[in-house]
Design a protein around this nucleic acid. Structure first.
Lengths: 228, 228
DNA sequence: CGTGATCTTGAGGGAATTCAATGTCGGTGG
DNA sequence: CCACCGACATTGAATTCCCTCAAGATCACG
């Protein structure tokens, strides 16, 4: 359950100064928010923003993967979410981020200035609606996360695998960008329990694990059953 | 961990037909959303709406208390949130509710038609902003709930008490509208563990429990320390 | 006062954690 | 090329915390 706080000090504030390009509002009506930011690369484990930093930007994963997390004062880390290409994160209502965000692997993230978006939303109901919808989607995701956290270890891992499978491109094979520690901290388990549970699922022929970061769902029905 | 599904069949759809009073949009600019619904009473344990029912309304607690919850297929119940007077619930982006809602005690709830609100939001940025803000608040609450669920029993109970205290009117005394079972299902614990934990906290002089629904926080600092 | 619902307390068991050791993989330098 | 190294993952044994099962205690209500 315990994780040493990571020590990446590629703080975002140094690095995000050049992300302001304001398209004309007119050009945006009916268009997706997605076309209006500057793309930035982040190295593996680099911090994208920190908890309690001002929430100046909204972020969209272009490539790679991102985790958001909080660290309790005794070092326990809880991962709030994993974000894959296409996902938006960093959407907050307050002026500061309530989680920290890090690159799981090398990744590219598009930055969109919050103030721009808010100003735009005041003119375009389309934009306003997208902001609202994205927040609501995050809420649903968080509620799903809550439902995961009350379950047994097997159910949590099964649920996690199904979630990843549903978001991944291909069919039965899940390519995991994150470590066992990340998974454990997402599921509220220890790394050992995650490992053991994967082995159990493999022994029961529900999955196979050709390499530690690649998992094949062999019996999706069995996993779904575990998903309660 | 197991709770029998409640069997209240005071289904909302029968009961909400008369909640449409549309104020002029002009009258609403700069005003709070709060002034535009019909108030309905609900009996203790009455269902306000069910999971997967169409989300036609948005709700605001006027008096009493409400719980939202989901029941897994094996009977485990997870409470998503408790709502006290002033709180808004039932805010969904999709067309159906993702949780069920019940009155914890006799209560009065104001109903606001969703379609009205959405139409209004299209005209008034004020209204649009309030909708977004409320959703974002819910998101924050859910994220806080996630952080609770990864902690020890003591930490969860302490966190719950502090949360209730911060929402309650008065100072050190918390008046709990909900049963031990409700608390247990909110915290992902059993009723016995909640009870034992409260006794522990009482023995360690952090709280006192004059009656089962009334709890006095005697050492808030100790509770906060537990809150990690 | 009974009666049922709710809450507390106790004893025992089980699931996940902790602590510790071993195994595997990818990269780097000899 | 292969040996070594560190990071990551798996496995094992012992412990701990919470759950389960069961019995009492307390409270609200007729």
């Amino acid at each position: 359950m315990h994780t040493q706080p990571m020590t990446n000090r590629n703080s975002f504030s140094q690095v995000a100064a050049r992300a302001t390009r304001i398209p004309s509002p007119a050009a945006l009506l009916g268009e997706s928010i997605e076309l209006m930011g500057a793309v930035m690369p982040f190295a593996r484990n680099a911090e994208i923003y920190g908890e309690n930093e001002p929430a100046e930007y909204l972020y969209k994963v272009v490539g790679g993967a991102v985790r958001t997390y909080k660290v309790l004062n005794d070092g326990r880390r809880q991962i709030g979410a994993f974000y894959l290409p296409g996902d938006v994160f960093g959407l907050e209502i307050g002026s500061v981020h309530s989680f920290s965000a890090e690159a799981i692997a090398e990744c590219k993230v598009m930055l969109i200035k919050r103030s721009t978006l808010v100003a735009l939303a005041a003119r375009s109901h389309d934009v306003a609606n997208q902001l609202w919808t994205m927040t609501a989607k995050e809420l649903q995701r968080a509620q799903g996360h809550i439902m995961l956290l009350i379950k047994t270890a097997q159910e949590r891992v099964a649920g996690f695998l199904l979630e990843m499978a549903s978001r991944a491109p291909a069919g039965n094979t899940v390519e995991l960008p994150m470590s066992r520690q990340d998974i454990a901290d997402y599921l509220g388990l220890t790394i050992e329990t995650v490992s053991r549970t994967l082995t159990q699922l493999e022994n029961s022929a529900a999955i196979s694990v050709p390499s530690s970061r690649r998992i094949v769902l062999r019996n999706q029905a069995a996993l779904t059953r575990l998903n309660a």
